[in-house]
Write a protein that binds this DNA or RNA. Structure first.
Lengths: 112, 112
DNA sequence: TTCCATAGTTCGGGAATGTTGAACTATCCT
DNA sequence: AGGATAGTTCAACATTCCCGAACTATGGAA
């Protein structure tokens, strides 16, 4: 067998967290421009640590949650760390606010 | 002929401008989450009146511009009025800011 | 008035994205 | 080991986006 099946490259152990300077404003807004992701972010303000199952309304498919968390992570909005068999997600408030001053606060303030 | 061919219903003469209370935060962010549309909005701050051709970088296809302006209009960000054979687009700053206080200003401030 | 140039919309099809069930990896607990 | 839990990846389908071509509409020139 000459090729190895490579599941989970850089995923299970090495989650990629971008440098905020590589995140464009459009990408940041895109990440926030979705009701499900807005809810996740708002929830993370209340409970600073959420795993995938608790991040979304129950009933949301696992793969969908995984996708949304990927988008948020790629936009520099959350960081994910592996904790046993779960992944803990936290907001990257400081980093994000340094790159886009006031943006997250304004969005959240407008998110009734 | 029993049916009339109805191009331009509510388009050429009756452009639809939504009530801002019917615009969701996600929709507003989605409208802003695109480099081309961000440029249009930023340009409208400088020159308060733009037609379709002057709104975008030259070379952008007409149908694409038309689409982007539709998205911005549907999000309550711009208003369009027919002026002779062109359509003049203006920002709905006041309306938008009443619905989403500070959002437009913060986004534009971050769009350096 | 007829013709032409300009301004922008609508349509259609291909490209790019988003969604989600199924299969999989990984870890913890008996 | 075996099972339960947590989440990722894949693949297929669905939705959205992009843009050329055809069209409507208006204004001005011949």
């Amino acid at each position: 067998m000459e090729t190895t099946k490579c599941f989970y490259i850089g995923a299970m152990d090495r989650l990629v967290h971008p440098d905020l300077k590589d995140v464009s404003l459009a990408a940041a807004l895109h990440a926030l421009a979705d009701p499900v992701r807005l809810d996740i972010v708002a929830k993370l303000v209340e409970c600073p640590c959420l795993n995938a199952s608790t991040a979304c309304a129950q009933g949301t498919p696992k793969s969908t949650i995984s996708n949304h968390l990927n988008v948020l992570r790629a936009a520099g909005l959350i960081e994910t760390s592996v904790e046993g068999r779960e992944r803990i997600n936290r907001l990257r408030c400081t980093d994000f606010d340094a790159r886009f001053p006031g943006l997250l606060a304004t969005v959240l303030a407008n998110k009734a």
